[in-house]
Design a binder for these strands. Structure first.
Lengths: 252, 252
DNA sequence: AATTTTCATTTGTCAGACAATTAAACGTCT
DNA sequence: AGACGTTTAATTGTCTGACAAATGAAAATT
């Protein structure tokens, strides 16, 4: 943990890495208090602002939390699944938007992963999960619902489906795939007929889970995946035709 | 982006959030240069060290990169899948170790997700992927291989399996599930017979992918999942018996 | 004994300074 | 004019010293 070569650049990054490694290796257990900033500065032979920059890096990853006062300081933070969800979603969303991931690719990943949950969800779904799914399916059938609200409800439905698997690791991994799709889904306008079809599939999935029929849930999820892909394709094709059609190609 | 209430605590966190939101919303596109630290300090009406702490938070999430010099500064970073892997693996590993996730739970999640890749991998696997999987399977059969090296090769095998699906989003999501399992797997001692069984299943999986038979790949993955669970259970049971047996219960 | 006050410790922030780096602007020589 | 070396300005990285705010513990008081 006292590694610090003599290249006086990226000092804060090096210190952050040293502490991070100590946490990962278990040398610094959860809730352990780190030395004060002044002590760390002395140990690493750097100034306090440099130490603070290192600590802020760790805080940004939720690896530590800080507390002011006499008995305060920086403490190794217990990374909880709920906190990690946020990071996971942010990162996934940015990955999709910054790397021009196609709708098809993201959609394929999302439904492949969801289908992985289906058999477990069928086994372990509770009344709570079923109620959430039914409630969201019902909300989706409300007239006058905006496309954005429809998408949000869609996400909530699928979150419940994933959580029903009763495996926090799966829920965590899936959070990114499901939530990061929302900006892409928001680009789609859902006609009344397409909403009807989606809601029918949602209902069928909820029915399958209620009957603890994993195969049926998987089948309907596959159908939903196919339908979503087709829908997106037709929407994008229509939009492209409109751009290249009467108004000519090109634009701002 | 100029939000900054009057509570003078967590200023650097607030500034980081403001800039992060601007990046996520797209107001700051990739490769856009942020104002210099001095300018940011003026804009947010804080000191330069505070701005720097905010920037370090963003740098820790790979949202920005900095460059010294006349035309230097902080630039919005294109978040690449390869960089995100590392973060994902670190977070997943810590989540498992800090929350006392059982081997069974992590293993279930991992194989459920891998099985989601199987049909796609069967469709799209290239000669490269097959060669990697064969090579790792062969390495696993080397005598004198340490348990740790065996596990590392196991991870490499499964990474190739996942990458064969040709979907970067899947590869990213799976990276955490697969790699974070390694510390847990390292707790297992693999007997020669159990290695043989695992290698046989690996070979069967590679065969199935080569034949583009997704169902067979899925079946063998399921078998591997079951076998791994059984193996872990017996290892842990043996270890528990040894602790509670001749030496009595309890310990440091 | 209970309550209030004081105090020491620690993080959060600020101001100013200097070093290191880097590219552009400038000047010089061919 | 063009190529090449030099200067310069801008910017990040780091340091020093300082003060404010929070907070729990110790001391003083009732």
């Amino acid at each position: 943990m006292k590694i610090d070569p003599k290249n006086p650049a990226d000092l804060s990054a090096q210190i952050a890495k040293a502490i991070r490694d100590a946490i990962i290796s278990g040398a610094l257990p959860v809730d352990e208090r780190l030395p004060s900033e002044a002590e760390l500065a002395e140990q690493f032979a750097v100034s306090r602002p440099t130490v603070r920059e290192a600590l802020k890096r760790l805080a940004a990853q939720a690896l530590i939390r800080t507390q002011r006062g006499a008995t305060g300081g920086a403490f190794v933070n217990r990374l909880r699944f709920e906190e990690a969800y946020g990071q996971q979603i942010t990162t996934s969303t940015l990955l999709l938007s910054m790397n021009d991931v196609s709708f098809a690719t993201a959609c394929e990943a999302r439904y492949a992963l969801e289908r992985a949950c289906a058999p477990l969800s069928a086994l372990r779904r509770t009344a709570d999960h079923l109620a959430t799914m039914r409630a969201e399916a019902h909300r989706q059938s409300q007239p006058g619902l905006t496309d954005e609200a429809f998408c949000a409800s869609d996400v909530a439905f699928h979150r419940a489906l994933v959580d029903a698997a009763g495996n926090p690791v799966l829920s965590y991994q899936l959070a990114g795939a499901v939530e990061a799709m929302q900006p892409l889904m928001n680009m789609i306008t859902f006609s009344a007929r397409s909403r009807e079809r989606i809601i029918a599939l949602h209902t069928a999935i909820a029915d399958a889970l209620e009957a603890q029929d994993g195969a049926a849930a998987d089948q309907n999820l596959a159908a939903l995946a196919t339908y979503t892909q087709e829908l997106a394709q037709s929407v994008f094709a229509t939009r492209l035709a409109a751009r290249n059609g009467p108004l000519g190609s090109g634009g701002s």
